[in-house]
Every structure is written in C-alpha cells, then in structure tokens.
Design a protein around this nucleic acid. Structure first.
Lengths: 245, 245
DNA sequence: CGCCGAGGATTGTTCAACAAGCCGTCACCT
DNA sequence: AGGTGACGGCTTGTTGAACAATCCTCGGCG
C-alpha cells in the first residue's frame, strides 16, 4: 500500500463500487473487506464514514454499511439539482465573462491573466471531454463514454470558477454513476446525448454561454425523464428490484 | 455518553466549533480532545473524517486537523451557490405547484394528499422561521437570529420537495455559520435582512413564488456583497488575520 | 402457526503499541 | 553571525486484540 492507507482506501472502495465490484444492496463486511484490502477494521471504518457522507453507502447502526440503492425519487432530485447548478454555472460564467471582456484590459493585471488562463483551459476541457465521449462511443467503450460524460459536466461547471459549485457537482456526478449502475444500460443512457454534448461544447467555445445554458436545460430535462422511465422498467415503485445478497 | 458515540461526537464537535468553543485556525489535538469528550482516539478520528467532509475542518496529513478558516473567495462561492439553489428551488416549487393545483383534484389520491400536506407544513415552517428571527432580534438575541435565519432558508428549500437540494443547502448553511464566525458581527450580518425574510415569507404564504424568488435573488446578491465587504475589514487579501494558536 | 429465548455473528468502542513524519533545538561549520 | 544538518521529542497513522452491545437465526415450545 502507498502511504496514507485511509485516503487510498476510500478511493479504492469508491472505484470498486462504481465498477460494479460491489453491487447496490451488498453489505460491506468489516472483517472480510479488511482482509481483502489489507487494512485494519478501524481504518476501514474511517473510510466508511466518508463514503456514507458521499451517499455511496448507507450506514445502518448496529447492522452494517450497505452499498446504496437510490430510489427514483432520488434520481429525479439529483437531475433537478444538477439542472439548477450546471445551468446556473453557465449563466454566472456568462455575466462574469461579460464583465471583464467588456473592459479593454488596460494594464493586464496578473488577476486578469489568471482569469484569461482559467477560461481558456476550461473551454479546452469542455471540448476535449465532449470529443473523448464521442470517440469512445465509436469504439463502443461505454464505460469510457460514461466517464467522459461526467468530465464534460464537471468541465462545464468549472467555467463559473466557483469551487463550491464544482465540489457539489462532483458529488452529484459520482452519485449519478450509482444511478446508472442500478439501471445497468450505459449505452441507452448515454447515446442520445453525445450529440448534445458536442453542440453545447461548440456553443461554449464560441462564447455563446446563454444559448449553451438553454440547450443544457432542455438536455437535462430530457435525460431526467429518460432515466426515470428506465427506472420504471427495472424497478418497482421506487425500490430497486434485486435479490437479497 | 448516549449510545453511538461516534455520531454524537460529530454533533458535539460541530456545535462546539459553531459556538466559538474552537476558533478557526485551532488545531484539534487527538489525545487532548479525546480526553475532553471521553472518547478514544479512534472514534475521534472517525468524527474528524466527517467534519472534514463537511468542510468545517481541514485535514493536513501528518500534521493534524484544524478548524477551517474560509477565504473571501469561499464566501463568494457559497453565496453564489445558495443563490442558484434557493431561487431555483422556489421556481421549481412554483411549476410543480402549478401542475397539480391546476388539476381539479378528481379523486384526491393519497399522493395528492401527501403533496398538499407537505406544502402546508413547509409554508408554515417558512413563516414561523421568519417570525422567530424577527422576535429574536427584538430581544437582542443575535445567536437565535442566526439560527432562525438558517431555518428560514432551509424551509424555503423544503418547498421544492427535493431531498438533494435540501441536504446540499444544509451543508452550505452550516458552512455559512463558519463564515459569520470569522467576521464575528452577527448583528450587522443579519439585521438588514430580517425585513426581507418577512416579505419573502408573506409572498410564499400567498403563493406568489416567482416574485418571492426574484426578491430572494436580490437579497442574496446584497448579502453577498455585504459579507465580502466585512471580510475586507477583518481580513487581508482573503486570508483571515488571526494570531497563530 | 406464531411467540420466545439461547447462541452465534457482527458491529461499536477502547486500549496499548509501534512506525512514520513533522518540528524545534542545538551544536557545528563556514 | 548565519546557515545547516543531525538529533530527539511529540503527534499522527495504523494495527491487533479485546470486550460490550446489538442483531439475526434457528430451534423449541405453547
């Protein structure tokens, strides 16, 4: 193990869960997982606390921690929240950009340079994520498509230069991967939106942030309905249908 | 101690921090705090993990955990995020309410009754929090005003009936209390907005959610500028000025 | 058929120990 | 004097064992 076992353990467990190695509903046995990851029960418990706070895992007192199985309700709530944050981020980015793009940059202060640089790298990240997702879909790598899609939305949020929005959205995006896991149809979930991602990216690249925001809002509304529909197929009244472990 | 020491410990530590018992910048010594709260070093570390995830505390590897000292940047980011979430929540509540208020409620399904009940209790909570803050200000209890203000904004978010928005906002509201702590001028921070709270509450009570959202947006923009200004008074270039412990 | 209790298994928490990393100190060298 | 580097103490990071408390299962009993 690299140093700092606890932190690394959190990453390892999160990755295992999101890769399907620990399916929703599974109980995370302290002694068994401790042996598997070669850490003590105590450090394992520390990791559980943060995963629980990330809502990847649910802690039932005296019963253990379980991989969470989000309800349709939660799917809806996550999409609605993303819509507020992502579209809001784009609009905030728009007004902020207008504010310092209007000024003729008199002496090019270091702050100005910093903003300029941040903007350029962010736009690049947006375009890059959209392209990566597109290419991955052509080679049929739907895991990579999912990952690129997450990066894409985080890159959009980065435009607003707001760390709180970013970290909140990061948490929501990883929670989304849990949602996709219970629906288990990566292709169907991502394919319809690859086109939208590219259009949004090109709007962002040409500085038309408000139009990007409008398109994104519609996009997220469609995606929400889509996923909720899939949930109806694979689940029963909000509770995922899966055999007990 | 009541059962489940770890969970209770988190609450106790959070309360201690927000009451000023552990000032921003303080290092949380594991053995000392362990003795003080009569818990082992291990459970203390579990509590640290969740406080760190709540951004009340900062964990520097091999150096310890410290009560966080938010920067102006973070103050700005938190306000911006609140603006997106709270105003968005009001607007979502508006469309959702319009959707099922338009329907003449044919058979009064149990779902309808549930929504109706949720709406009424939420509105009550909004009005109540606004009134409680107002009364507390008359008796000069500025701690209570701060608490009531937090409740008020959480109650607003409750209107949208979205758990994700609610829990996100809850986290932001407690982080705000950290911000107020470093500025340490509860009266100046809260007094100008008591009036706004009441007006927003009455708009909500009469169902004019969109107008409430507009007023709230302006409110939060003013509050943001206000707090950022206070920060300039008490701090230097984004870093709080305080003697090392 | 359902209630109930014993027993086993798992979690919750503590303690003592040790490795590893940070920090202040102080002697030493230029 | 001032920089520098090794030393040693203190704190964190992690472990393993131990024990109490709680839950679940399973079998017996009414």
């Amino acid at each position: 193990m690299g140093k700092l076992a606890a932190g690394a353990l959190v990453d390892a467990l999160r990755a295992t869960i999101l890769d399907g190695g620990l399916r929703p509903g599974t109980r995370l046995d302290e002694t068994r997982l401790g042996a598997q990851f070669e850490v003590s029960r105590n450090t394992l418990r520390e990791a559980f606390r943060v995963l629980a706070h990330e809502h990847l895992v649910e802690h039932l007192p005296n019963r253990g921690v379980f991989v969470r199985r989000p309800s349709v309700r939660e799917a809806r709530d996550v999409y609605e929240t993303r819509r507020l944050l992502e579209c809001g981020a784009l609009r905030e980015a728009a007004v902020r950009r207008a504010a310092w793009c209007g000024e003729p940059d008199p002496d090019g202060s270091t702050r100005e340079r910093h903003l300029q640089h941040h903007w350029e790298t962010s736009v690049l990240a947006v375009v890059d994520a959209a392209e990566r997702g597109w290419r991955a879909s052509e080679s049929g790598d739907w895991d990579e498509v999912g990952s690129a899609n997450g990066q894409f939305h985080l890159a959009l949020a980065t435009l607003a230069d707001n760390d709180v929005i970013l970290r909140t959205l990061r948490s929501l995006v990883t929670e989304m991967r849990l949602l996709f896991l219970v629906v288990a149809a990566a292709r169907e979930v991502h394919e319809p939106y690859l086109e939208d991602n590219r259009r949004i990216a090109s709007l962002v690249a040409s500085g038309e942030l408000v139009r990007a925001a409008i398109l994104l809002e519609d996009y997220l509304l469609r995606a929400e309905r889509h996923l909720v529909g899939l949930y109806a197929t694979h689940t029963l009244d909000g509770r995922a249908v899966e055999p007990r472990s």
